[in-house]
């Protein structure tokens, strides 16, 4: 069935051994054990202990140092010419599948949003076959989106209804205006997708300084986005009374925009590294710049997620 290959073949580089994976595991495990301890002490204990914080910090530091060293190793290997075209394709596939997994992560939160808005919310208010539930448990609750009152408030607070007694959920007195900060953020992020594309075009034409400028501009747009998002959260908490505890509206609002914001930070961090690599190290050539390309794919992905957010969280 099979014979030894006679054609030209570049050897696929398989590193002999590496401490990176084990070290990353230690950092990850210490970090999450510390994080879980911190949260449990906050919620169930008598306050956060310094040993848990210490564990969390040490774990995070080990993980950060390991990942830094991991990525620099990969970059050095590529610059040393050890990566065959086939290996480079493996990295590209890895990144594409990773972005697909990220899409599915957001899918879970969008799914929760649609389920609540289309089904669970109306049922709580007596729609569909939920009439009895509304009459017996949540009398007087009316559903609207954005949510003007929580079921708990409708029945008169946590004490008034046995199954409402698992937290305190108060509705905000005003909502985020989509045509103010969110609109600016949309413009910022959409234009940053364009600028990062211009950077890519410049790089493919071998124009380093144009690449650096366009990528730098993309980063500034990203930073501006994050600043405005912080401003929006600050206003939500201080002026609108919109918090994580504002019932399911606040929950979906902050989790969707928050995870997106976190991904913007991550994407900006990735692009920032690529910018430093180009400006300080002179990395990347017109036909070999996967670190930048992967980061720009990621950037386009967070942009697309934002369009979904702008439509379904802010406008509609």
């Amino acid at each position: 069935m099979a014979t030894e290959s006679t054609g030209d073949y570049e050897t696929y580089y398989v590193p002999e051994k590496s401490w990176l994976a084990f070290s990353a595991t230690i950092g990850l495990v210490l970090g999450i054990y510390g994080a879980a301890s911190v949260l449990n002490e906050k919620t169930f204990g008598d306050g956060i202990t310094s040993s848990s914080v210490y564990m969390l910090s040490v774990g995070a530091a080990i993980l950060a140092v390991t990942l830094y060293s991991w990525f620099s190793t990969v970059i050095q290997e590529n610059r040393a010419g050890m990566n065959s075209a086939q290996l480079k394709h493996s990295y590209a596939l890895g990144m594409q599948w990773f972005i697909f997994s990220e899409v599915m992560f957001f899918f879970a939160f969008f799914g929760a949003l649609f389920y609540v808005r289309m089904l669970a919310g109306p049922w709580l208010a007596g729609g569909g076959e939920g009439g009895a539930m509304n009459a017996l448990l949540w009398q007087g609750y009316e559903f609207s989106w954005p949510m003007a009152s929580t079921p708990q408030e409708s029945v008169g607070g946590a004490g008034a209804q046995l199954i409402a007694n698992n937290g305190s959920f108060s509705s905000p007195h005003a909502f985020v205006d989509p045509w103010h900060l969110p609109l600016y953020n949309t413009l910022l992020l959409l234009s940053s997708s364009v600028t990062v594309h211009f950077a890519h075009v410049a790089l493919k034409q071998g124009q380093r300084s144009r690449f650096n400028w366009w990528l730098g501009g993309t980063l500034l747009l990203g930073f501006a986005f994050v600043l405005l998002q912080i401003e929006e959260y600050y206003e939500a908490y201080t002026e609108l009374g919109l918090t994580l505890e504002s019932g399911i509206y606040g929950s979906t609002f902050f989790m969707l925009t928050g995870f997106h914001g976190f991904h913007v930070c991550l994407g900006a961090f990735m692009l920032g590294i690529q910018w430093l690599r180009s400006v300080r190290g002179g990395h990347f050539t017109a036909d070999d710049h996967f670190g930048f390309e992967a980061s720009s794919w990621y950037w386009h992905f967070v942009d697309v997620v934002w369009i979904g957010l702008f439509l379904f969280v802010y406008i509609i």
Binding site: A108, A112, P151, A164, E245, I248, S251
Partner: peptide
Amino acid sequence: IHFGTSFFSAAGGGDPVLFQHI
């Protein structure tokens, strides 16, 4: 559990059944 959201609590407008769907 830790931050007061109400994904799975009807009191805040969420739904325990949402958990089962996800």
